[in-house]
């Protein structure tokens, strides 16, 4: 776990709107080691999906403002959607939030896979056996390839998309909310498949984006927490869960239910307030207004610094 796979430095991505730029990602710097599975958590609108998308494909409204992304010591041209095509699928891949509707409804899955692979210059015959082996691995029969997406259940579609996405063994896989539309037992199966894929070397590093901290706790080596377009904390999973330093992380963890604890007389507490608008974010620490520990210095922006080995925090109190 020493070699660095992904290195993101000073990444800024804005959404263009009529009222001005929404600063969805503001000066994000982090690294993912080779073979590391990093969980990316945070509440809705904190920029985690934007970060995931930035690594693959910026959509029409997103603008790459500043910063670099390096994968295996090679810079990804993330602002140039045409040049990025060389890296997509082979080097870096996203399992999208919308796996249920990710496949063309009017093409048989096998035919779609074939057309897709051949459009990327890969002979379908060369991967056919590997494809079938992986289908077996996730518990899908070979004949799904002769079916249309509507003939599959939600969980089957999710697994099919996972197999398809990782077929060319990308070095980095971004799994965006892969479990959010599934029931609990399927969630677990999907999470285990992700780990299994990594252990078998189908993917080298993973970023698992989720708002479900308990899910990443089970599969991730480290967890990164985002708040309002900025990084709050990154640390190995155990450290984040047991001794978080950033007050936001502390509140986030404490708002989760624990196994074996009865909540009849002790209500779970949430975090009062809501995140600031990213259209014109306030100066200084963005969590200041909701933070119980805020003091004068918080009007200056806290740097994202390493406080212990592998433990980064952006807070003056940490």
């Amino acid at each position: 776990m020493s070699k660095v796979s992904l290195r993101v430095a000073g990444l800024k991505v804005h959404y263009r709107t009529l009222r001005g730029d929404v600063k969805a990602l503001d000066d994000v710097t982090f690294a993912v080691a080779d073979g590391e599975t990093m969980g990316l958590a945070g509440e809705s609108g904190c920029g985690k999906t934007t970060l995931g998308k930035s690594l693959i494909r910026l959509d029409g409204r997103m603008r790459h403002v500043d910063g670099t992304v390096e994968l295996d010591d090679e810079e990804l041209p993330i602002g140039d959607t045409a040049r990025m095509n060389d890296f997509r699928f082979r080097e870096v891949f996203i399992i999208p939030q919308y796996a249920m509707s990710a496949m063309n409804p009017t093409r048989k899955i096998g035919k779609m896979t074939k057309e897709l692979l051949e459009s990327r210059g890969v002979r379908f015959e060369t991967v056919r056996t590997e494809l079938k082996r992986r289908l077996e691995l996730v518990g899908l029969a070979h004949d799904v390839l002769d079916r249309y997406p509507i003939e599959l259940s939600g969980g089957m579609k999710q697994r099919m998309v996972m197999v398809l996405s990782t077929l060319l063994n990308p070095s980095l896989l971004v799994a965006d909310e892969v479990t959010s539309a599934l029931d609990v037992s399927t969630q677990r199966a999907v999470a285990e498949t992700l780990v299994d894929f990594r252990d078998r070397g189908f993917v080298r590093s993973m970023i698992v984006i989720t708002h479900d901290v308990s899910l990443v706790y089970q599969i991730a080596d480290s967890i990164m927490v985002m708040y309002a377009g900025k990084l709050a904390e990154k640390a190995p999973t155990d450290v984040i869960v047991d001794s978080p330093r950033h007050p936001y992380t502390q509140l986030l963890i404490s708002s989760l239910p624990e196994v074996g604890v009865k909540y009849a007389d002790k209500r779970l507490t949430g975090i009062p307030g809501s995140p600031p608008s990213l259209l014109d974010p306030p100066a200084g620490c963005r969590f200041r207004d909701r933070c119980p520990l805020a003091f004068d210095k918080c009007s200056e922006e806290p740097p994202f610094v390493e406080v212990e080995h592998g433990h980064y925090v952006a807070c003056w109190k940490a």
């Binding site: 693959i56 999208p96 919308y98 509707s101 990710a102 063309n104 009017t106 897709l116 990327r120």
Partner: peptide
């Protein structure tokens, strides 16, 4: 549509994406 975004995220050329879109 989602399937178009997915194909583009897989780096499929515009020709294929548009072909599927046209058919649907």
């Amino acid at each position: 549509a989602d399937y178009s975004h997915y194909l583009q995220a897989l780096g499929a050329p515009q020709r294929l994406v548009r072909k599927y879109a046209f058919r649907n």
